[in-house]
Design a protein around this nucleic acid. Structure first.
Lengths: 324, 324
DNA sequence: TCGCATCTGTGTAACGGTACACAAACCGTT
DNA sequence: AACGGTTTGTGTACCGTTACACAGATGCGA
């Protein structure tokens, strides 16, 4: 830029203004500068230097609490990210993906991220990344949880939704099965009986608590309830999980934490059983099973707006039962 | 950092070394520095300043040639991005998503991106973003195309694959239908007859050319071939597109550019028809239709390695027909 | 004890911009 | 002609690091 200024015979600041505030510089001068830039092959201000001086990077960081590979394959994550990216595009912000795989260098990644704010997606209560994010002092929002001081929580009332859906499904149920997402980084597959609701993934915990309330309310001891756990929200995982428990239980009702899992259960068990899902995707409408409707897209938007510093108030995200 | 140095009674450089090359500074000094940092609430070197000085950002930019919202919902894009992110995680690189929506400020976004290299995904021949990327002079790779000087092309031989698959499907076909992804930013839905292969999206063009060769080889005039175009690779779009053309054509064979579209066609037409897909996902195995097998994950890896400057040679990506 | 290699710690000078404040030139009024 | 207000251009710091080169201290073999 110094060279351009010299070549154009103007001050460095004039060149700077030419790019950042074109109206601040007279047309002939501007032309002279641009021409000199062209001649010298100068492509405009360096974004890094600009960030350093101005103090903002124009980037939003999204911390994904799972291996990035999975994040792209999880339909729920995709909806959420779509919401985040909507805000980014509208406000000309970059979107930086930051994986958090449970390894020690996660916190370094957060500390070294050149972003103005953070959005967090599905992490465990004890994830050090949460602390690392709040320690930056930059605006941050988290979907689902865990809550933390300095971290805005965006979430629907999952506990109430889970309770309501379980209540609905339990009517007339003989042998209900719960199909759950992972409880923590260790427990992500297999069959449990009424697991303690002392679970590290906050969203899972909240939902299980809601289920438990509905079961106990209906006079069914939680300790007897079979809960099949899967690693991620894919139809295939749903199929496998259900197939794997058929030796032990023969469900006539399946209460699942996603539509993908519910559809997988239907694939294996046939239309004779009643299933319920979560997030009310196309799949639920298509196969005609009830689902908890909430907009992860909107929650992504809400998180991003906070991280971008556009607002710092959060409304509780809404939900409702889509019964079919 | 200056303050920390003062508080610890050492030079600024010593503080810098404490973080970047801990072995370069004696243990007692290091402890003194870290303690002073703790006391002052200093959280380590600022990433932006570091980038400015050292000349590299530690970020890879991925330019998505469609609205980000769709990128997350396109299974092909997800596989590709998974490959890119694998490389990022392994090399401690950040992943910056850069949307390219066809609007004029796309090029600004590229110019202002604080990244060391670029990966491009599905853009049109005339997309100014391609020029913007090469103009940065930073390493860059593109999947599928368009090719450009200074831009490494990672791609399977789509034309040969398309020709081979079409040849296979045309045997005994009475009324074949082609199900295509968009031809350019305008033509992304509707029914065409043997469209000119003068198409702006290079991947689409290459595949259509391959199909055309197979059709003409089989003595079927390309101008008569019905080609249904959809906006994106979802099963639902496939269903709608096929349903929409049933007034005009009654296909007994559907040659689709993705498994999702192929599955959608099967949904509408029933098992009586033969369909083929592309990318050989679970869907193809499950419904038992043939598909072009290629690894978009591997192509993502290849692109990322180039953009990261880890290599600058490209092997042609492999493909094969998965016949069923 | 000398000589030389290895450790540690220190200045200085960029990296490439923008914030800010100020000065000169220019305008239309009165 | 004097005056206040708006353009337009300029200088000077400073943003927070690290590259580089150098100096004193230390260790160790001969």
């Amino acid at each position: 830029m110094r060279d351009v200024a010299a070549a154009a015979g103007v001050a460095v600041m004039t060149v700077s203004y030419t790019y950042t505030r074109p109206d601040r510089v007279a047309a002939p001068t501007r032309a002279k500068v641009l021409q000199a830039a062209e001649r010298l092959g100068y492509r405009g201000p360096d974004p890094v230097a600009r960030s350093l001086r101005s103090g903002s990077t124009g980037n939003l960081g999204v911390v994904l609490g799972e291996h990035l590979t999975y994040a792209f394959e999880d339909p729920q994550a995709a909806r959420f990210l779509a919401g985040v990216s909507r805000v980014c595009v509208q406000n000309r912000l970059g979107l930086v993906l930051i994986p958090s795989t449970g390894e020690p260098d996660d916190v370094d990644r957060v500390r070294e991220a050149a972003v103005d704010g953070f959005v967090l997606w599905t992490t465990a209560d004890d994830d050090p990344v949460v602390q690392a994010v709040t320690a930056t002092g930059r605006p941050a929002a988290i979907q689902g949880g865990p809550a933390a001081p300095g971290l805005h929580l965006v979430s629907a009332d999952d506990q109430a939704a889970a309770r309501a859906m379980a209540r609905h499904m339990l009517a007339g149920a003989r042998s209900p099965l719960v199909l759950s997402q992972p409880l923590d980084r260790e427990r992500w597959s297999g069959l449990l009986r009424g697991p303690d609701t002392d679970v590290l993934f906050p969203v899972t915990r909240t939902r299980l608590t809601g289920y438990r309330e509905a079961f106990e309310e209906a006079g069914r001891p939680w300790g007897d309830v079979p809960v099949a756990v899967v690693g991620r929200h894919s139809r295939e995982e749903g199929r496998q999980a259900v197939a794997a428990v058929l030796d032990d239980v023969h469900p006539d009702v399946v209460i699942a934490m996603s539509d993908q899992l519910a559809a997988g259960a239907l694939d294996v068990l046939g239309d004779g059983v009643r299933v319920s899902g979560w997030d009310d995707s196309e799949l639920a409408a298509e196969r005609g099973f009830p689902s908890v409707r909430q907009s992860l897209f909107d929650q992504g938007v809400a998180c991003a707006r906070i991280a971008a510093g556009l607002t710092d108030t959060v409304d509780g995200a809404s939900w409702e039962l889509a019964l079919r």
